[in-house]
Amino acid sequence: MPETIKWLGSEAPTEVRIEGYQEIKNVKDAPDVEYYVPGHRTCAGCGPALAYRLTALASGKNTIFAGPTGCMYVANTSYLCGPWAVPWIHTQITNGGAVISGIEASYKAMIRKKKYDGEFPNIICFAGDGGSADIGLQALSGCMYRGHDVLFICYDNESYANTGIQTSPMTPYGAHTTFTPPGPVVPEGKKTFPKDLLKMVAAGHPAVKYLATASIAYPVDLMNKVRKALAHKGPTFMHIHAPCPKGWAFESSKTLDIGKLAVDTGMWTLYEIVNGQVKVNYAPRRRKPVAEYVQAQGRFGHLTPEMTERLQAFVDSKLAELGLLVPIPAV
């Protein structure tokens, strides 16, 4: 069991309060009523669409979604229709967090004034990495800080994919986007390393007691985390890794393979932070080198071995923080 990370403060854990959620034991046990139905213009093999579907499966009927601008707004709602069988509202890319705060506050007010006696809804903001880590960061931070009973999900396809793959703060080092094309001056494409959004939310928002990362390649884990987050009273945050065939330049059938590879190489880690205590959910038995992940995607096609080494060093430092730094077995 990895020890609590330093930046969270070591005396934090008192009790794990996530209870009363209905656990999904395996795929066969998963709910089968779709609230994110077929009929949306996302790409063939869209990772974020699968993340949305799994979230909607887990959250169920009594849910309100807010969708900041991004792929999961534009592709889903073209021509005045949307694929949600639950209420959904479009928000600007800047203010997803503010809108769900408002929805939550109004439900609380209606309950206080005895104008609503139904069950309190699951209020979920399903924002892209731009709508949560970049343009939408202030609304996310405000929402988490004020302590609303909401779930903010960042589906991370590591770019502004809706507008044609521009770089975002979540784009990994070395990725080719239309804003970071590799050339003679900047041969690696993107020069900077991405933000760590989960850490940022966890470290700066004491009201948030449940945070988790998830990946669409681990659907049961993802659905359980959504349920845990919704069962928790108070602001919760999830960061879902959602590979994008268009932006990352791989075949549409490989979406889940790339998701798995990300976890196996350490480019993505599955863990949750409950009351300040870190729990790693899955540690790959045989860690793969980052080079394998890099070779599988067109966006890294220009990387030299030295650049891949830099990426590997970055991944190693991230894994060391979580206590997952095991040597890569020789092939």
Partner: peptide, 22 residues
């Protein structure tokens, strides 16, 4: 048809029939 009815659970969105992607 500017207004497409909202889908029901386990239904589908008739406004976006995507079978021709295939």
């Amino acid at each position: 048809d500017l207004i497409v009815p909202a889908p029901l659970p386990n239904g589908s969105q008739e406004g976006h029939i995507t079978g021709n992607y295939r």
